[in-house]
Design a protein around this nucleic acid. Sequence first.
DNA 1: CGACGGCTTGATGATCATCAAATAGGGTGG
DNA 2: CCACCCTATTTGATGATCATCAAGCCGTCG
Lengths: 229, 229
Amino acid sequence: MFAETADYIKTDNVPGASWRNSTPYTSRSVQTIEHGASLFFQGDDAEYVFEVVEGVVASYSVLADGRRQVHCFFFPGDMLGLTPDAVYHANTCSIGKSRVCSIPRAKLMQIAKERPEIAAKLFESATAQLVGMQDHFVLLGRKCAQEKVASFLSALGARYATEGADTVTFRLPMTRSEIGDYLGLTIETVSRTMTKLRIAGAINLPNPATVEVLSRRRLERLAGDGAGY
Amino acid sequence: MFAETADYIKTDNVPGASWRNSTPYTSRSVQTIEHGASLFFQGDDAEYVFEVVEGVVASYSVLADGRRQVHCFFFPGDMLGLTPDAVYHANTCSIGKSRVCSIPRAKLMQIAKERPEIAAKLFESATAQLVGMQDHFVLLGRKCAQEKVASFLSALGARYATEGADTVTFRLPMTRSEIGDYLGLTIETVSRTMTKLRIAGAINLPNPATVEVLSRRRLERLAGDGAGY
DNA sequence: CGACGGCTTGATGATCATCAAATAGGGTGG
DNA sequence: CCACCCTATTTGATGATCATCAAGCCGTCG
């Protein structure tokens, strides 16, 4: 969505080699982020706003004793690093290798002042994330393990599904640990729940990283969403 | 924050009597919302953006079987009804009597195009909500009952606290049921946990609706946040 | 004064976390 | 190319936390 905006910004204003993980500046403001590498940490100066171009990036918080909560997985087209001030409020890490487009935040905010359609896109991106987060509240606060996992796989499946087909096969980019930290479960519970879904005939697991949704409809029913209003 | 913006909008453009709960249009675009009344429901056309002027408003989702999750409590100064499209994505209800300022959404978006500082405020409001929601993810996904309740009371206490004082007394505007639906707990667990906090000497409960935080510092420690990074 | 709704407290049980161990898959070095 | 190792995942056993069911309490309001 904003990948093209980056080009609007003169690249000679973009400082190079400013990455905590020493990812080289590529001169097209698109960086390749290695598996596990971070775009930024909580408390860092918010120098850039990012758009995922390829791969997946996770944002998360950690409590003092190590408990971790993944807030969100960002997929291609998603913006991250949006903050109300000039500081990041979460940590990030790349799930597998990913490519992100970086846009200097101050510059972008400046441009937003001149071009209303850019400001509107930023607002739309932020509010779309707000809406997405609401479903996740319901999941975390009110769903049981089976509903959580079914919801997760269902949502991920929808991303890869072809129109009309009731089955999907896709590769899970994230580990059980990351899934658990996203769903508020332990890795053991995630694993057990997935086998349960497999035994129930809702999915197949040719290998731990590959999910075959046998019936999207059924999985959605197991997700417990029904027609909430 | 936006209360003044409402005045920028010519009031003769604001349709009256458009409220689902038949709240009368007051000609100053500030409505009084009765206890339990709703500003809007999920799926409604997003005619207005609101700013809470007084009282508290909750937004929530409901699953088909009645399980409810409160996403957020909106206090004076908070905006609600921000959406990426023209539809509301959550339900709302007033906690006790409240007063809200309503701003026609289309009009506001139009104004945002002409006045960058308004667009910036909208963006800031949306992203500030994003940041606030992240802490709530941690609470819902990774905290135990005691930490949840302590976090909640601590946050609420901070809102009423006076600079430097380690104690606060305030009135809980919401019921145990609403607190439970916000924290992902049952009313019984909320009640039990509050008693535990009382016995532990962290708070006092002169009556069910009044909380006296005896030590904000201690309550914060019980909230489990420590120095997450 | 009595009834109602919200809150508290108690008893029990289900779900999920924890601890522990076995298995499988992928990558590395011989 | 194969053997090995390391890590992720799966599976099992046990226990803690919190939900559920149930009853009693308290303040409010008619």
